[in-house]
Structure formats: structure tokens, C-alpha cells
Design a binder for these strands. Structure first.
Lengths: 183, 183
DNA sequence: CTGAAATGGTTGCGTTTGCAACTATTTGAT
DNA sequence: ATCAAATAGTTGCAAACGCAACCATTTCAG
């Protein structure tokens, strides 16, 4: 039975405050920026965020398998599969089976797809410019470093946690899978 | 008919690269950290991320309306409504109608809810500590500043964009609502 | 050479999501 | 005092999500 202290008022242990909590703040920030960019393109180009990620990835790399797109754009393979299917049926993306490995297929942008990419890319870039305008070069570098460092660190940390849980993780088998979705 | 230049090779316009694109990078980072923290608590406490946000918010503020929780934790009111309903039925949260305004109700943690909060909070804080370990004080301050500045800026920018679109936004009424979900 | 394991990709399914519409109550204008 | 607009919160619904299971093909071990 857990003894519930109603707020310990203990100054030694720092209290958790959601809006000082980094993962939470990062989620809010990420959502704000995504929302912003998406508003710039989704309406006039009729492209959702997952779709845009695919188009953007193919815009950079010309020809990729679905697997590679997923790896590069951090999307679940089913999400890629369905979005790609949609984009193909809308004539944005083209599929071409790899004859050397019949399991996979190379995906690329059609002319229409490239037009969409060329249309959205400047909008996306302009969003980024507007986002960091008001920062000087040093501050911009600091932002970039911060994001890079945290990403590296959080990746490592996630692996650590996974490993920890893989070891001692047979404790509470009654607990549900606990879907890890958004923030 | 859109003329699709197959990669302009124009060095004056900077090309878009997804993994240098700040909104994208922020989304990846946010997802990584969320995933990490959630793994620390979801299994042993049986609490989802939206639920944890509610518990955390109530842990700090003791007594809030659903509306206030939503505003504070950046969650859609239907998400709050359903998660709260769940938490109440599980005895984690208590609802108490405001007699001065019968539309709303004050929500607070039960003893069990507080126990969960007291259990998760240190885990969350330890995650944060591990995340920024290896950074010196200056770098930590830089991270905090960067997140704060970008959040402020992206909020302002989003408002600008909304205003722009509210004005000239009657152009393409055929475009679908374009749900703005995750990244 | 054969069969098991691995890999690329799709699909069925139950859950979660957000939007729109709704109820109930309060506020504000006339 | 009355009625329209605003606000808190819930719910129906369709879309989107991720997991697990699956098919097809390739790789690898013995």
C-alpha cells in the first residue's frame, strides 16, 4: 500500500513542473513548429504531414525503397506503406520493382510529385528562416548544437532504457503493452 | 501544367534536407524523449502519456477544471475528457462539480493518484538528469534558452500564419481540412 | 541443395485521435 | 427580463494509428 504524502514540501528534491520538464517542452515546441509548417503547405498542396515527409525524402534522394524512406524519415513501415499507396494512386509517386530483389521496389517522384516538392520546399525553408529570425549567428549555432546533442543523447538513453528493461523486465507481465504514441 | 525541373542544381537556393530541417529534427527529438520517459513509467504504473500529463498537471496544481488541464498541458479537450473519464473510473482522479458554475467541475488526484504522481515524478526527473548529463552548466543554459526562444517564436509565427490564412484564405475551398496531427 | 531465418512490404484489427455537433449552463446586450 | 452568444464538457463518427500476423522473396547455415 503506497503511503500518499500530499505534497512533501521537500525543498531538497526538486518538484516536477510540467512546463519546465524538457521532454514535455520539446513536445510542445515540436507540435507548434509542425503545425506551423503544415499550415503553409497542406492546404494548397493537399498533402498531409506523413505524405510530405515521403515527398521530401524522395525529393532529396530521387530513388529509394519504402524501407529506406521509413528509416530516413522516422516513420512506421505501415504508415509509409499506406501513404505511399495513396501517393501512387494520386500520381505523385511512382513504384518500380527492383528486379534484383523482387521483395522491394524503388519509389520516386513523378513530374507532378516533383512539382509538389519544388512548391513546398521553399515554403518549408521560409518557415525555418522566419523561425530563427531575430537570432544572431551564435544563437543559431547554439540552437543547432542543442538539438543535435539532445538527439544523440536521447537516442543513447533510449537504448540504455530498453536494455535495462529487457533485463529486469519480467516483473509485471500483467501490465498492458502501453502504446507509445505522441507526447 | 507545372514544369518539373528535375533538381535545379541551383546553389543560390539552399536545398531542403529533411534532417537539417529544424521542425523535422525537433519532432524526431521530441518523439525520442517521449518514448524514453514513457518507457520508464508506463509499464509499472499503467499510465499512458496523455494520462500522465493529466496526473502531472494535477500533481502540481491540486485542483483544476478539465479546461485548465487542457490549456496547461496542450491537449485537445476531447482527449482530456476521455482520459479523465478513464482515470476517474480507475480511482486515480476525483471529480467535484463547481457549485458556482455548474458547467464545470474541479478535478484532483485521489490518494492513489497522488501515489502515482509521487512515483512517476522522480522517474521523470531522473530521465531529464540523464538526458542532459555530459553537458556543463553553460550548455544546459543554452539548451533551455534555445527551447524557450524557439517556443516563443514558433507560437508567434503560428499566429502570423493563421492570420495570413484567415485573410487571403478563400482561394482553394476544394482542399480538404488537412488534419494536423503529429510531426 | 535444402530448410530455417531474415527481410521488404501489405493488410486485418482494435484503439486512439480530432472534428463537428450536441447538451447544459452562464454571460452579456438590449 | 429576455434572448443571443459564449463557455465547459461529452459524444458520434470517420480517419489514422501501430501492432501483430501475414505473404513473398532472399539469405544463410549445415
Amino acid at each position: 500500500m503506497a503511503t500518499a504524502r500530499p505534497a512533501p514540501a521537500d525543498p531538497s528534491t526538486p518538484r516536477l513542473e510540467l512546463d519546465r520538464f524538457l521532454p514535455y517542452r520539446l513536445n510542445v515546441l515540436a507540435a507548434l513548429t509542425s503545425d506551423g509548417v503544415a499550415r503553409l503547405y497542406s492546404r494548397q498542396f493537399g498533402v498531409s504531414i506523413p505524405e510530405w515527409r515521403i515527398v521530401a525524402t524522395l525529393g532529396e534522394h530521387v530513388k529509394l525503397t519504402a524501407h529506406a524512406i521509413g528509416a530516413h524519415s522516422h516513420m512506421h513501415k505501415t504508415k509509409v506503406s499506406r501513404a505511399v499507396g495513396d501517393l501512387i494512386s494520386r500520381g505523385v509517386v511512382r513504384r518500380e520493382i527492383n528486379k534484383d530483389d523482387l521483395r522491394e521496389a524503388f519509389l520516386s517522384l513523378t513530374a507532378e510529385g516533383r512539382a509538389i516538392y519544388e512548391g513546398i520546399a521553399p515554403l518549408a525553408l521560409s518557415y525555418e528562416v522566419r523561425l530563427v529570425e531575430g537570432l544572431n549567428d551564435v544563437e543559431r549555432a547554439a540552437v543547432n548544437d542543442a538539438v543535435a546533442t539532445l538527439t544523440r543523447r536521447s537516442r543513447a538513453l533510449l537504448d540504455e532504457i530498453k536494455r535495462e528493461q529487457a533485463k529486469g523486465g519480467k516483473q509485471d507481465p500483467a501490465a498492458p503493452p502501453a502504446r507509445l504514441r505522441d507526447s
